[in-house]
Design a protein around this nucleic acid. Structure first.
Lengths: 182, 182
DNA sequence: CGCGCGATTGAGTAATTTCAAATCTAGTGG
DNA sequence: CCACTAGATTTGAAATTACTCAATCGCGCG
């Protein structure tokens, strides 16, 4: 789990004690719109999705979260406001939960932990910029292929209609794409 | 400049000494594709844009950077690879430059600085997620209005065709939008 | 006064969406 | 083992939306 920094056993135990574990089943929600956002989640196994539903009842997926990914409604988590996202399980999952208080406490107590989280967010920031560039510059077909090469594991777990909702195209259009591709 | 943390005078001087200042003129580049990325830039005044040019010679803007914003080609900056972005000045600007070595050094030496940068990136991460949601869920008109309410200052500095390149629509389409709006 | 850049407008075209229907697939219970 | 069902995917045709290309307009600056 921690390959960016090295912790002593006591340090690790201390860090570990600030997380709680949770087993989740397919379709189970961890966050629903308008509820308070208590935790950030680290995915030990399984796969979740973070998304919004707009007025037309269309789902738009902000993020998938697979093994070793972190996920929550960050805006609400950091600001202490109620959720604007839904997050639920695409398949059975195990997660570790950490409250904002515990996270900030750990970051204060252990400089290395703050360093760890800074590096993590930096990497996440870069990934989001890449996604924005992909959304801006690429055709649906290119977006699909970029995702396929970047996260091939996704395609074993996730129905294509969710891929479509992540890429920002209709499922019909996505379907027509790889008909052409072959 | 630093309202998230408090530094003593000596600390501040120490931090300050790791930055170098630079005055830039309109149209001047700070980063060009394929060049090494030496610095992250903090914008003291003026306005820059970070963008790519695709095969069709179309510009797509990843980020504007106004007063108090940070900007660089983060992927290349952190990985030490050559730039994939152009960054240049929309108007005359003053920036502070910090190398990755200096940034990491400061973060090591002063816990509060690492805290500062963690908080900053967290906020940036949230902003990028908002942008992705906007790109996914909103019509061009809504995107335009969201940007207008979020960063009204932008519209005084930036020609509309650059706004279009940021929102992911053609300048003609953007033009037709606010014809309808009034 | 005229140049040049940015913004607008119009017409035709290309791409995607929408809606509806048909097909396929995996899991369930008999 | 088979039939059934719900969900997922595919296909078709029409409608919508944005794009492209070209021409025009407007305005600030030398």
């Amino acid at each position: 789990m921690e390959e960016l920094i090295t912790l002593s056993d006591t340090e690790f135990d201390h860090v570990w004690s600030h997380f709680s574990g949770k087993k989740l089943r397919k379709h189970q929600f961890v966050i629903q719109v308008d509820d308070p956002v208590r935790y950030e989640y680290f995915v030990v196994s399984g796969c979740l999705k973070a998304y919004v539903i707009n007025e037309d009842n269309k789902m738009h997926i902000l993020q998938f979260a697979m093994q070793n990914w972190w996920v929550t409604d960050y805006q609400s988590y950091y600001k202490g406001t109620n959720a604007k996202l839904y997050i639920d399980c695409i398949e059975d999952a195990e997660v570790l939960c950490i409250s904002l208080e515990n996270k900030d406490k750990l970051c204060n107590e252990i400089h290395k932990i703050e360093h760890f989280f800074r590096k993590k967010t930096n990497a996440g920031y870069v990934a989001l910029q890449q996604r924005i560039l992909s959304l801006l510059t690429s055709t649906p077909k290119e977006k699909y292929e970029q995702l396929l090469t970047q996260y091939p594991q996704l395609f074993q777990k996730v129905p294509k209609q969710l891929i479509a909702a992540y890429l920002g195209v209709s499922r019909e259009t996505l379907s027509r794409l790889y008909a052409v591709e072959k």
